[in-house]
Amino acid sequence: MTFIQCEKVVKRYDDLISVDHLSFKVDKYEIFGLLGPNGAGKSSAIKMICGLLKMDQGQIYVDGISVNSNPIEVKKRLGLVPQELAIYENLSARENILFFGKLYGLRGKDLKNKVNEALQFVGLTDRQNERPEKFSGGMKRRLNIACAIVHQPKLIIMDEPTVGIDPQSRNHILESVKKLNEMGSTIIYTSHYMEEIESICTRVGIIDSGRLIALGSVQELKDQNKQDEKITLFVDHIPSEAIFELDVHPQIKEVTATEQTIEIFINSSQTYLQDILFILSKHDVKIQTLQREEPNLESLFLSLTGRTLRD
């Protein structure tokens, strides 16, 4: 069942197109990952889904409601975890959550219970009366999440919620996202860390320069990219003749050589590994180590755009 539907959405800032005819659907109870490098248009897309940014063209529906014509109704269904910490430093953790809970219309016992649940969910019950100025970066991030989920929304939008935190806090947040999904929320998760997207998302949209360049489940996208397995060889020397021979091999897609490292992108490495080893031995190249990497979203992005996600 479709929960979010984006139809040919366009957003321009003067001459710059930030979002270019973006179309995708997100099903109910999905964790949908939006992957792309910085400046790809992820945040603009998110803001338009939340009704925070007016689109120049297109339509977005959330739970069947048009964001353009009824943004207030859409906002009732969502909780936004912004990329930046959107919390008040001079209110305690509990007061922060209480404040936003009240603004979502919660009152009385219901408010109290849901604030307690949110605090428990992010593991801040013990420090609920402390102000965020005393918190670590990870704790602030967790409070940032708690403020967005206090009203238990149907849709949670997380815009790079793990930026600038330690691995332990990152894992905690990723586990929380999975738990929220299990509790019945549909989640849109943006990141430029492909490992995060791979580990939690059921489906992924890859966005670059405002355009959706790939869409599907993590496995589907990996399968699309199967021909692009990567073999990395550390060698004693690199004769140019050997590189030339590798480059003209019909199944090798790309060869790059730097100092003592040769990187080869090849279709079905198991079948053609012998060919590679033969060419190198013919030119007296001694192999020190050999690594074979399965295709991933990073390599898919590379093959689609010629750039890495962190470029």
Partner: peptide
């Protein structure tokens, strides 16, 4: 500047 306005604007408020 503290981005709390972003969150406030995402809440169903005029």
């Amino acid at each position: 500047e503290a981005f709390t306005l972003l969150r406030l604007n995402s809440i169903p408020l005029h």
